[in-house]
Amino acid sequence: MILVENKSKNPAYNHALEEYLLSTGEDVFILWQNEPTVLVGRNQNVYKEVDIEYCNDKGIHIVRRLSGGGTIYTDLENMQYTFITREQEGDSFKYFAAPIINALKKLNINAEFTGRNDMVIDGRKFSGNAQYHQGNRVLHHGTILFSVDMYNLQNCLTPNKKKFEGKNVSSVKSRVGFLKEYTDKTIQEFMDVLEEEICKEYGIIERYDPKDIEEQVLKIQKERFESKEWNFGQNPKFSVDIIEKHPFGLVEYGINVSKGRIKEIKINGDFFGRKNISGLEDLLRGQLFEIKEITNVLSQIDINDYIQGAQKEDIINDLFQEGEV
């Protein structure tokens, strides 16, 4: 494994760098930062998750990630980390969180992994993680909240209230943890020590300056992460709108039906998946919007490839609730 020394604070460049490094076959670790940015999960509807006007007024970037999961706010008061390696067996989220947790313990910060993709300290979340899969490779990245601009965090995101059903929380501030409360170090000092501990754990001795691949990275930055089509997509109107919360995430279905068949379908949410959700949408488009027909289609695939943790029965129950269609 090599350490990539990325000094860029531009979110479009940073995510383009991740994508390029994923294609090289090298095992890498990166500890980096973004300017104030809203990072949108690959499968989410930016128009529903983000106060776009607020972000524009405040000069906050809006960039869609390659990975699934939820929409988050990041800035220079916190940091991101990335592992790019071969696929891991078992709970890969927990696998990649472990070296971060181990490093924090050496700094006398007792963190733990919880749920499907979070790290917490004293019951408060300080890190959310997401993944993108390509062949037998995985890009795992997460945010580490050293601190954050709480005003921006509370005003730039507009999450669906259904996401928090069943959670005993009174405010964003009450459920978020900041590592600065557990150390007297500055954020840069903290990043330097964290990077050093990760390098020790993996025996990393090689450091790499990405300036040698800047041309390739800038091409990806321009074509994808600075593209309005990629970052914002479309916001079509649907005749059927269904939103359901599951242990594996929030799933939203937008469907237009014509003459009994699915004319158009869009599936959004903060779920994860190894395959692009558009593949599932393509399979459903044109099918009769009936339980038997959709059950037959879903029986021919592994739904877990598209929505990690889901069973076909979950999708059927979502789509054919009494009174919905």
Rank of each mutant, 00 (worst) to 15 (best):
I100K: 01
K292V: 12
E215M: 03
K167N: 05
G254F: 07
F272L: 14
Y306F: 10
Q287M: 06
M1C: 06
H61F: 15
L39H: 03
N6H: 02
G203T: 02
I307G: 04
F29Q: 10
K7A: 11
L107R: 05
K292E: 15
E201P: 14
F113H: 10
P11H: 09
N304V: 00
N235G: 11
T114V: 12
F83W: 15
H140K: 04
Q134C: 15
H15P: 06
L250S: 01
N14F: 02
L76F: 06
I294S: 09
D212M: 11
E244V: 04
K7R: 13
E26S: 14
K228D: 14
K263N: 10
R224Q: 02
Q131T: 04
I307H: 05
L3C: 09
K105A: 12
K222I: 07
S127F: 09
D318Q: 07
S67F: 05
I267H: 06
E324M: 11
F126C: 13
N14T: 00
I204L: 13
F190D: 00
L31I: 04
V325L: 07
G166W: 01
N304H: 02
F146H: 02
W32A: 07
R65M: 00
N256T: 10
K163Q: 08
G233C: 11
G273V: 01
F272N: 08
K222M: 03
K125M: 05
N14R: 03
Y95N: 15
A103L: 04
S174A: 13
R65H: 03
Y132S: 03
I315R: 07
R64K: 03
G249W: 04
F190Q: 02
I187K: 00
K106F: 08
G69F: 01
S174P: 10
E5P: 03
T143Q: 02
I242T: 06
L76K: 05
K237R: 14
H246Q: 07
A97H: 11
E215S: 09
E324I: 09
F164T: 06
Y132L: 02
L39Y: 00
F232C: 12
N43C: 09
D305Y: 10
E5I: 08
K173L: 02
E181Y: 00
I100T: 04
K106P: 08
I198D: 04
V193G: 08
N43Y: 14
S171L: 01
I303V: 05
I204G: 09
I213G: 09
F96N: 01
F238P: 02
N155A: 01
Q154R: 09
K106L: 10
P11S: 05
K161C: 00
T186S: 15
L179F: 14
F238G: 14
L76E: 13
E252M: 15
A97D: 15
V4Y: 13
H140L: 13
K125W: 10
Y47A: 07
D241W: 10
F289C: 07
F248C: 03
R116A: 07
E49L: 07
V297S: 04
R207N: 11
V217D: 06
R274T: 12
S170E: 13
R86Q: 15
D118Q: 00
N129Q: 01
Y20D: 07
Q80T: 08
